[in-house]
Every structure is written in C-alpha cells, then in structure tokens.
C-alpha cells in the first residue's frame, strides 16, 4: 500500500484469485462497504486479497468504481433508462458469465450502486414473462426434468448398491481364501504329529 499526502491519491494493491496484483485508487475502493469495514480503519499492509474473484472481474468492478468516483452521492437506484452512455456500454460489453461474476463480486464488496444497477437489469430481463417462460429463463428444472433427474439418481443409487454388494461378496470370498492356509497349516501339523506318533510307535 502506498500513502501519498492526499487521501484521494492513495493507491491500494488488490490481489486476485490468480495471485496477480493491480492498483485501485482509494476513492474507488471506498465505494466498497466491505473494504470500508475491513481495511479502511486498520489499514492494509501489502496487497488486499480478494482472492475469490479473478483479475478480469475485479478490474471490471473497479473500473465501474473509478468511473463513478466523481458522480454525486448515491441516492437510490437510477432507472435503467436514465443510465449514461458510458454505463450502458459498461453493461452491454459484458457477456453473461462476466455479468454474473461482476454481480457476485459487487455483492461481496458491497458496492451499492453497481449491485443495484445489476439487479434492476435482471428484473427488466424477467419483465413480461409468464410462469413457463420464467422457468425457462431462470433455468430452473421443471417437474418433468426433476422426475427424470430423480430416476437417474435412483439408477445411480441402484448401480452403486450393486457394486457395493459385489464388493462385499468378493470380500467374503477373499476371507474364505485367507482362511485356507490356516486350515492347511492345521492339517499339515496334524499330519506331522501323526507321522511322529507312528515313528515313535515303530521305535
């Protein structure tokens, strides 16, 4: 962590899941309530580990924070129609995977403004859908799919049971085989003793 005179110029090092580090301004980072609660008062020596998220996601999140540093104080969510061109580009250039990663990271970092915009965007996506469409869109398994899944699970369980039974059977056989040498030993001992007895009696 570097600490120049002005607090707005303070740069923090962020560490991603890949172990890479990059700089984020203090002003941008302070939009994260998680950061404020965890590090602001106690300070951070060395990079701040946000290692649950990859570099691309964290950079995207802090790109948003850097951009909104100079925006007026957050006072509830903006309507998506009121988003600036920059905001729209920011959201539109993300694919779905990145969008989900950004929501998760923003939620963890507790960046109110970004999380709210993302959530409103999802709500808009679901607007006007009926139950069946909603099921398709949010990829919940339907009753039929659940039934099919349950059947597969049952088959798997039955197969696993069979394997376990076979294993138990094999183990039982092995035990019988292991017992053989003992019996053979007893028999051999018995034979030896008989031979000894016979040789004694011959003498």
């Amino acid at each position: 962590m570097t600490s120049p005179a002005s607090s707005s110029e303070v740069k923090y090092l962020i560490e991603s899941s890949e172990g890479n580090t990059f700089d984020v301004s203090g002003a941008a980072l302070r939009q994260s309530n998680t950061f404020n609660a965890m590090f602001l008062n106690i300070g951070a020596d060395g990079p701040i580990p946000f290692t649950d998220y990859n570099e691309a996601t964290l950079k995207k999140v802090f790109e948003y924070c850097e951009h909104s540093v100079n925006e007026e104080n957050y006072s509830g969510p903006k309507h998506q129609d009121d988003l600036s061109k920059w905001d729209l580009n920011f959201f539109n250039e993300m694919d779905q995977k990145m969008f989900i990663d950004v929501i998760n990271a923003s939620n963890f970092l507790d960046i109110e403004r970004l999380t709210s915009y993302c959530c409103e965007r999802i709500a808009r996506m679901l607007r006007g859908k009926n139950t069946q469409e909603m099921i398709k869109v949010i990829t919940l398994p339907t009753a039929e799919e659940l039934e099919a899944k349950q059947k597969v699970e049952e088959k798997k369980a039955a197969a696993a049971k069979k394997v376990a039974e076979k294993a138990a059977e094999t183990a039982e056989k092995t035990e019988t085989l292991e017992e053989l040498p003992v019996q053979q030993l007893v028999q051999t001992t018995r034979n030896k003793l008989t031979r000894k007895y016979l040789s004694f009696s011959n003498e």
């Binding site: 679901l126 869109v137 949010i138």
Partner: peptide
C-alpha cells in the same frame, strides 16, 4: 430464443 439467466444460482440477498 429466450435468454437464459440462472437467477437462483445468485446469492439469496441478490
């Protein structure tokens, strides 16, 4: 085609 979004895989507070 409907866009798919795994809403229920997000954290509950989201």
């Amino acid at each position: 085609m409907q866009p798919i979004f795994p809403l229920f895989r997000l954290p509950e507070n989201v």
